[in-house]
Nucleic acid binder design. Sequence first.
DNA 1: TTGAAAGCGGTACCAA
DNA 2: TTGGTACCGCTTTCAA
Lengths: 344, 344
Amino acid sequence: MVQIPNPPSPDSPAPRSVPTSADVARLAGVSRATVSYVLNNTGAVRISEPTRRRVHEAARELGYVPHAAARSLRAGHSRMVLMPTPSFPAGPLYTRFLGELQWALGRLDYTVVQYGTAAPHEEDAARAWAELRPVAVLAPASDLGPRGVDVLKRSGARAVLTLGPEPVDGAHALLTDQEGVGRGATRHLYDRGRRSIGVVVPAESGLDVFSAPRLAGARHAVEGTDATVTVLPLAYEEQDAARLAARWGSLGLDAVFAYNDEYAMLLMRALQDEGLDIPGDAAVIGADDLMLGRLLRPRLSTVHLELPAGRDLAALVDRAVHDPGAPPERHKVLGATVVHRESS
Amino acid sequence: MVQIPNPPSPDSPAPRSVPTSADVARLAGVSRATVSYVLNNTGAVRISEPTRRRVHEAARELGYVPHAAARSLRAGHSRMVLMPTPSFPAGPLYTRFLGELQWALGRLDYTVVQYGTAAPHEEDAARAWAELRPVAVLAPASDLGPRGVDVLKRSGARAVLTLGPEPVDGAHALLTDQEGVGRGATRHLYDRGRRSIGVVVPAESGLDVFSAPRLAGARHAVEGTDATVTVLPLAYEEQDAARLAARWGSLGLDAVFAYNDEYAMLLMRALQDEGLDIPGDAAVIGADDLMLGRLLRPRLSTVHLELPAGRDLAALVDRAVHDPGAPPERHKVLGATVVHRESS
DNA sequence: TTGAAAGCGGTACCAA
DNA sequence: TTGGTACCGCTTTCAA
């Protein structure tokens, strides 16, 4: 069956069908094989210079672009690294990290794809990702159970890496020690003499992945001491912060770990508006070490987070891809350091 | 050539090759066609209940996941909407917008994919995207010239939408009126009696896409008046802000449009540290209407940006896909409103 | 140096 | 109700 080249439409700009390598071959007067050889610069086969030129010329003229799906179907594998689009509002920290990682993976000739449609159920998500047959998957541990890892591996993913506080069976783990953040912050407050410590837990959904372990770390830090930890739910709104500040006196707290710098700014402002002295009446510490903390007065104490360099992580992915049989590795990827400023 | 099913490795867990629909068919004792019918719930074909059960059972047992590339190769089209990963550090505004859009497109059964490897040259980028044969592409106008649009369309993209201040030939345009932001902010300062207006231009690369039109808008706002606009390059560092603040007196300015709220916070802090009164000595206005502006003292004036609802934009994409022949539409997608607070 | 042809994994037409 | 089969676009072996 011959494909109809151009539906006879005298006046409308003929909606050319997408050119294939066969079209290029036809126009150049060679076979499809030759086209493939030329365009992929196959080393093992020598093509004469005039032929090469003709093929390139034809490809350019037709605006030929190879079909990635067909290629990887034939090849039996792709170079796609899949990451789900984060479900939480990514801060500057994570954004920069992601950018670096993508760049580094690009250098290793991987194509990074962020898959952006959240599935309701965890295993469905894994199946949806698996349909794309990525060579590697890097996902939050919270989005991927052991079943999900299995689905991906059975569909040919040579490396599955999870990012989160706990490892997932069968996958390489990048352990983000969020507990350490809460522990460090709280221990710092304790060391500064505080004993009644509030811990902000954002009301916004999606953040519990971070806030839960941070809270757990805080609790852990005061275990066996005379200090107490009080949970302070807080929505990221001025009103809610004002409400919390208004009943501050009745809470009997002398310090607060405010989840991160942004929530810290919100709460600190509300406390100051209530006439409280920071750190006199209440010590405040945030986390993430954002610029804004340095700009506040008093300057905001915080927990600085050291994310792994994109290059290193890209190299890890590459190694994992090359050796799919290797036992899952575990890497700590969150260096947490308390930065003491003026607010605590 | 028969594929070797299981490399003889007596002790290691046999690395099964990826199951295909043929494997499912074999196990269920039916043909590949039947498998396809059952798993896709093809309406036109009735399959007996026992057979359906056997097929589903076999698929489950093998952990079968269909191969998206093979499917879309056969179908001749995909439901993939491709967006390049933004090259600038996406703020909370853009992040939320993106999330909404992805969700809305997901509801329309599109798969959103963020392509995350920047190509050096613009047309190369378009070609790289075109290899994936997305049904629609949504990209910053700065990443996509008319040639790029053409490449995409010739490779079967049914809709190409650009996001930026200027339309791109052949593509639907979502016009982000960044000029309007600068114009609004500057006109506001002018209306408040200011005549020597500084405009911050971030030193960080990648932001010029926004800063250039914002500056142009500022210039436009004072055209034909007795006011002047002075460009103030500023890196997002305390030091650089301090430097700028130190020579503030010599600049003879009485107001500044600080690019956005974050740069405004940085600069305002530096000016205050220099002992200047805001807005007495210098009026300050930011943009983006972030939470932090409301928390500053004095409260930061800003320009509120109204991004289009994800639902509406998703609907627009869907319409464009359904009618690829339609002439390019243009939509203004940035409602800019000055929010007057205390800093100006 | 070039061409013919098989086959990657699905889908859908046609026949049984 | 089910099976056989052609075909989507590309790569690669084998022959010429």
